[in-house]
Design a protein around this nucleic acid. Structure first.
Lengths: 164, 164
DNA sequence: CACATACTTCACAAACTTATGAAATCCGAG
DNA sequence: CTCGGATTTCATAAGTTTGTGAAGTATGTG
């Protein structure tokens, strides 16, 4: 960021974007860190950069980056001869990776419905409703996987179209 | 449900399914009510039915059904000459309606990214990352809308295939 | 080897969420 | 009009989550 006014604008955006991420189930601090890493101009951050940039305690960053690394949204790098890890938001395919974990959640959904069908049986209204639920969720999972897989090619196609 | 053993099995399933719904962002009590209405055999419930069936306080049901009606997953009906509202899980297209609200959330996501691009500008790495985020999310929104719209026909096609 | 810097872990305080019991409200029946 | 059953509202207690400061740990530097 270039100056203080810009920084305030950035932080306001970070909070707004993080809010949406939180509504999608992400804990507050990881959401803020992700939004900040996305919107600020640097492409690598130490934990300290993030703490100062977001004006939160280093302790909060520590937990947040651990979770983000865990789910693959941030990667940890160590530059030889330096004391701190560097956190990189690998923006190429970032959202595909994000969706991969959402797809896993959807799959758990399908499994839960399946287990219900097993114990209830298909000869009861409840079981039949669960079967339709399972079918829809499975359909959605397939469609989403497909869409996510198609995105990189689609993006490049669009970029090429703009470039000409 | 036919007997007590079955009821325990049902409630266990309800908790498991509700857990998945909660992980998807739904508050606990609405998640339980939805799972119960889905898996139990009745197709209409009074608030009292739900309270007794789930063994929770009527107060908890009151709040839960309000939220579910709000998002369109449950509809309220009033039988003439009766004291209680009836809650109906309109299972036809239930999940399409569920997805409609998810799609709205996704749209808010797109909007948030868009606002960020506006304040940051496209001439900075942060702005460019946000632009790619917006493009992906918009793509996903379109693909999902499309898939949801195709589902009813797809389901009927499958049913017909099985029937022959 | 001692030091300084950067990060992590831990215990805790504050804020928020959740579900309850009790009281208030609603509405049809007699 | 009053009664009675059912639901809703409200205050509250219990539980959970969140982020902090302080102490501890690791690592490169002089």
């Amino acid at each position: 960021m270039t100056d203080d006014g810009e920084r305030i604008v950035l932080l306001r955006f970070v909070e707004r974007f993080a809010l949406v991420l939180r509504e999608a189930g992400m804990p507050p601090m990881p959401a803020r860190v992700l939004a900040y890493a996305l919107a600020d101009d640097a492409d690598r951050y130490t934990a300290g950069d993030l703490a100062r940039g977001l004006d939160v305690s280093p302790a909060a960053i520590s937990g947040a980056v651990r979770q983000l690394v865990q789910v693959g949204l941030l990667t940890r790098q160590r530059e030889p001869g330096t004391r701190s890890d560097l956190y990189v938001l690998d923006d190429r395919d970032l959202w595909s990776r994000f969706m991969a974990s959402e797809l896993q959640a959807l799959q758990r959904f399908v499994t839960a419905a399946e287990d219900g069908i097993e114990v209830l049986g298909l000869d009861r209204p409840g079981g039949r409703r669960l079967a339709e639920t399972r079918d829809f969720l499975a359909f959605l999972h397939a469609e989403l996987s497909d869409a996510v897989a198609r995105w990189p090619a689609e993006r490049d196609r669009r970029a090429a179209a703009h470039g000409t």
